[in-house]
Amino acid sequence: MLESINSNLNDYDPNYSYADGVYTFNDDSQALYLEELIKSDYPETLTTERRTVIVASFKSNQNIASIISEIKEMPGVIDVLDSVSGQLLIKTQGKSYLNFNSQAIQSIRIAACRAIFTPTDFRPDVQIEGLSVSGNSYIFTSNDSYSFFNTAYEMHQKVIAAYDNKTFIKKEYDYGCFVIPNKGLLREMQLKFVSNKRIRVKAASGLVEFYPADYNNYIELLSQVRQHCGESLSIQEPEYHPSVAIKLLSDDISYCKKVYKEVAEKITEIALSFTASFEMMKHVRFSITLLSILSWKN
């Protein structure tokens, strides 16, 4: 069944991705084609559901020089690089991890972490599981800042073991960050959209999730959020990629409710018909009995 669906999609437009039962497309025409294909070819077996989620970041329009200055004063920090897009790259020396409990760090969101291990006598033939190679260094990256420290330590031990403890391994840790805008304003916005099921503002992380029905709806949702940004905030506009999930009809709650209702109605009809027939039979039997009695008396 899946092979047939994919074959039809490839004939229409092969530019899509598939994972865990969800197709992600470049535009709504591809998503619409899949939905119509399922309705046409598998009406009694399958159904579809839009699963489009687009995550955007808020950007602070304030001067972040003071935040950068505070971070540079933290122990172990080598440098802080600022990009035009408002992203920060914090570099720390090998003996120190970034202190996430620092007051300065409360103003930023860690988006990605990277550990760089550079042996003094790097050998390109030494490959280490879980690490990529860049130049003369081994690289480990993670989007999970909470588990990064423990995993980076394990990776460092792997590099040491791979080189038989006979060489010095230079360490450097980098953190890709975004400055979190005014949380008070974001909390107000989150409260504003709390009942809107297509917009979910996350004030603590400076993010907003959109659940659009289609591209036009996505533009409308972006516009709604921008109306509350004011001058101190701006928001990215990630590319729109619709996602469609294929589900068994038996797993669809609304379909199951519909079937249950139809079955219940049929059972009720049968029960009423049976009751009516039973009452009729009682009357017929009574009439026959009465006639028999009268005939016996005569």
Rank of each mutant, 00 (worst) to 15 (best):
I67H: 00
V263A: 04
L2Q: 13
E129C: 02
Y260D: 13
E3Y: 06
R50Y: 06
E220K: 12
H241L: 13
S223I: 10
I108K: 04
G130N: 00
I169Q: 04
N165L: 01
H156Q: 09
Q227Y: 10
G94F: 03
M280A: 15
S195C: 08
M74C: 10
N99L: 03
D82N: 13
R51Q: 13
I116W: 00
K202W: 12
L248T: 08
E70K: 06
M280E: 10
E35I: 15
P75D: 05
E231D: 14
S295K: 11
T268P: 05
L290M: 14
A19N: 14
L131S: 01
Y255H: 13
A31V: 15
Y173F: 10
R226C: 10
F100M: 13
I5Y: 10
R200A: 13
Y175D: 05
Y16V: 10
I270M: 08
P181M: 04
S142T: 11
S223V: 07
C113P: 13
E3A: 04
Q236V: 14
R50I: 15
V259S: 02
F193D: 02
I110F: 03
P75M: 01
I68H: 00
T24Y: 03
D121L: 09
Y260V: 15
I180Y: 00
V263N: 08
M74F: 03
L290T: 14
Y18E: 02
K197I: 13
D27E: 12
P181S: 05
L185H: 06
N136F: 02
Y175K: 01
D144T: 06
D214H: 09
I246S: 08
D174M: 08
N63I: 00
S232M: 07
I90T: 14
